[in-house]
Structure formats: structure tokens, C-alpha cells
Amino acid sequence: MSRPTALIVRAPGTNRDGDAAFALDLVGAETKRVLISEVFADPKLLHEAQMLVIPGGFSFADALGAGRLFALELVTRLRDELTTFVEAGKPVIGICNGFQVLVRTGLLPGAGMTVALGENTNDSVPTGFVCDWVRLQPVSQKCIWTAPLVDDIECPIAHGEGRFICDPDTMATLVADDQIAFRYSTPNPNGSMADVAGICDASGLVLGLMPHPEDHVLPRQHPQYLRHHRGGLGRALFQAGVDHAKDV
């Protein structure tokens, strides 16, 4: 079986592209890490890929708010190409900063709905950047990334702006349309509404999530590895995406 190509697009400040590439290589993708300037110069890179990955980091230093400038770049220069990509049934994943980018482009949650990822808070008090481990419960059966998942995923978070918020109507729609991809099943680390850790679009192809399953694809990456803990690996998520991309 051929290896589907996962195009990992980075902006200045993207920094978890290597982690994402390692995870995807492990589950059978052909990974290609490119700068956005390369994609702008040659949109064929996108057309020829079967999966699009927007990894974590601090694109453009997040100086105007997380993901805003990266999203503006994409929307300004690649809007039609991105729409075509999803319409072709190809999966897209945005992790951490990538999630923030997808939200700002409007690809998530889509259909004109707006959500935001704000500064982490605890009882509305800003708490700033936090790096810790969380447990994620896969929810959506519509999302091609989460539907095949059987077990919870354990993985790190590392962000300062991960508080998922939207108005109550949007939340009701997201729940009703099975667009809640992941919820935190450990204590909510960032003040997100309804413990939402990730959402997908209406097609189920586009996933965005704040935590980093790409940093738990080997048992030894778990903090309790030397206590013989096994399981909770994030690779099942990437396997689901690659399995879907193979058939595109």
C-alpha cells in the first residue's frame, strides 16, 4: 500500500513540525515539511498531498494573538486551494497553534460559526502558559480522526491560549452535529467551555485540537514509562488520519 503524503506547513515560529512528522512517519505517512512561502510559490505542493498538517508553535510569535497572522496569510493567498482540498475529501489537522490558525481561517468549525481560543484561565483569572499532561476523551463519531479511537489519549499540553469559547447556540450546534472531537477527561487545564479540547468541521475531515498527541507516540514518552505505564498513545489518532488519507 502506498504511503499517503502528509504536507506539514510551517510559518516562521512553527516549532512542533518535527514532532508531527515523527508521529506521521511512524504510522505510514510520507511527510513533507515545507514553509508557507514554498506553498504560496508552488500550490501544487498542496494539490499533490493527501493530508494537510498545521503543527504547533508560535507562528509569527503570535504577536497579534495566537495564529492570527498565519491564518491571514492562508486566507489571503490560499483560500480557494484550501476549500478544494477539503472538498476532495482530504483530511486536515491543526494542532495547538495549528488549531488556533484553523479557527481564525474559518475552516473550524465552519458554516459561518465562530469560536475562539482565548488566554488560559482558572475561574476567569488568567493563568498563562502551562505545560502539563492531560487525558483526552475522543467524542465525535463523525470526525474521521476520532471515530476509530477506542481508548483515551494521554499527551502533553503546552499553550497559553487554549480556552475554547463560543456562544451557547454555537455550542449547542457543535454538540448536536457531533463536532466535539475531544474533551479533557482530566481536570480542565485552561478554562475551556464544556471541557472542549478539540473540534472538527461539519465534514469531519478537519480536526483542530490544543493538546499534543504527536508527543506521545512511543511508550517511553509517557511520564510514567519508568513505572511501566503503557497505553494512551496518540499514534492511533494519526493512524486514523493516515488510513483515511490512503483512500483519498
Partner: peptide
């Protein structure tokens, strides 16, 4: 410690905080 990302690159096996509750 938790304000520093000590997970990126996926290479950290023993972290600055450890134990069953990290």
C-alpha cells in the same frame, strides 16, 4: 517549571517533575 515547555521534541524521558502525580 510548568511555564516552560519541557515536552517539545518528544525526547524528554525523565522530566523535572516526576512520580505518579508528576
Amino acid at each position: 517549571i510548568r511555564r516552560y515547555d519541557h515536552e517539545i521534541l518528544g525526547a524528554t524521558v525523565i522530566r523535572p517533575l516526576t512520580g505518579v502525580r508528576n
